[in-house]
Design a protein around this nucleic acid. Structure first.
Lengths: 202, 202
DNA sequence: GATACAATAGACCGATCGTTCTGTTTATTC
DNA sequence: GAATAAACAGAACGATCGGTCTATTGTATC
């Protein structure tokens, strides 16, 4: 279990699914590039859909882990950390190999909301929103849950627009919007996070 | 040309592509539901890809025309009109038959940026941004071009998140963000459109 | 060295896909 | 009513797909 072969399959399949789509990428293509026999795939994942789900789950975990790490290394200030996510997006979009968010593609290719890939995409969107919400909580911002969802939505819009327009601009726009949003949230009704010594209201 | 049969094909194909995807929807299925012969499709559109492009172009035109109409009927105030777009999104998401934005799906299913469907999607995103920019110009907001792109990006994020989460919340969040953005844009460095008589800065 | 098990290559299957071809029917125009 | 062209139904094509089956090879453990 978790053999070297199935790891290789996940790794190769992820790259192919990302760059060429789920339906258009045939099983034979994955097997050839991974140098793995067909039966190994079916013994480990049961079906192509099984492999797809495995790839999605792995990708979600990897992406969020990596984001948290980048963000933690970027700054100790919670608000700066939130903006760091959008800086990471900008770097991602600048990569010539950038080809959009896998999970948005998964939802598009598997329209049935009950399908496993759609569920995985839904879970991923939730995980991203939760990550943002956690950072908002750290920043002592009001209503971190809603704010987290908004930030995740802005990030989604940036990813999808970057894919459509083939530019990195959306990341910068998204960062600006996030800045404005955080500024507003800070000044509304809670203690400003940057002036930590001030008295709490009421 | 523009015969009743090819209109029927576009109409039926649009619905099927929307609800079940481009690749998973077979030609035979479209023909059966449209009650059209196979050769009629190939005589009118040349290929399945030709039909897909025709559907995308038609959808883009329809969607933007309809949006402009809704917005014009909603209010005469340019800022209110901008927010009206997000109200329209909210209504769209509430429709139980809502299944996401066709153009996002097209980009996902046709990863090659040079492909015709990808180009159509890029053109559509540009058209939406232009529409927002025009409204921003009417509202005498600063840098309407960039603002238009931001608003289009927020709308994209809402559509994509609504699809993933199967909720209408994203539309409300998007509207809130748009409000904040407009508020900021009004008060920054230009003459506030609502208090037209105030002195210009500097 | 024998046993057990995983992984191999590759033929094979049924189904489906987009597309082409054939021959017939319908509608339009003179 | 004849002529032209469009739309029709449906068989057939080659290709590809996901998945199964078989028989062989390598590699551990006892």
């Amino acid at each position: 279990m978790a053999s070297r072969k199935s790891e290789k399959l996940i790794h190769i399949a992820r790259r192919l699914f990302e760059t060429e789509g789920f339906h258009t990428t045939g099983i034979d293509r994955i097997l050839a590039e991974a140098g793995v026999a067909k039966m190994t795939l079916y013994n480990n994942f049961g079906s192509k859909d099984g492999l797809i789900v495995a790839v999605l789950n792995r990708s979600s975990k990897d992406m969020i882990d990596r984001l948290k790490k980048i963000v933690a290394e970027a700054s100790t200030d919670p608000c700066e950390q939130i903006l760091g996510v959008f800086d990471a997006l900008a770097m991602w979009f600048s990569d010539p190999e950038f080809c959009g968010c896998m999970f948005q593609a998964a939802v598009a290719e598997f329209p049935d909301p009950q399908s496993k890939p759609a569920q995985a995409a839904r879970a991923h969107q939730g995980a991203v929103a939760d990550m943002f919400a956690e950072l908002c909580t750290n920043a002592e911002l009001p209503d971190p849950q809603a704010l987290g969802q908004m930030l995740a939505m802005i990030a989604s819009g940036a990813m999808c627009t970057a894919r459509q327009t083939q530019t990195r601009e959306p990341a910068d726009h998204a960062r600006q919007i996030a800045e404005i949003l955080l500024e507003r949230a800070c000044s509304t009704n809670f203690t400003p996070p940057h002036a930590a010594s001030s008295a709490k209201s009421v």
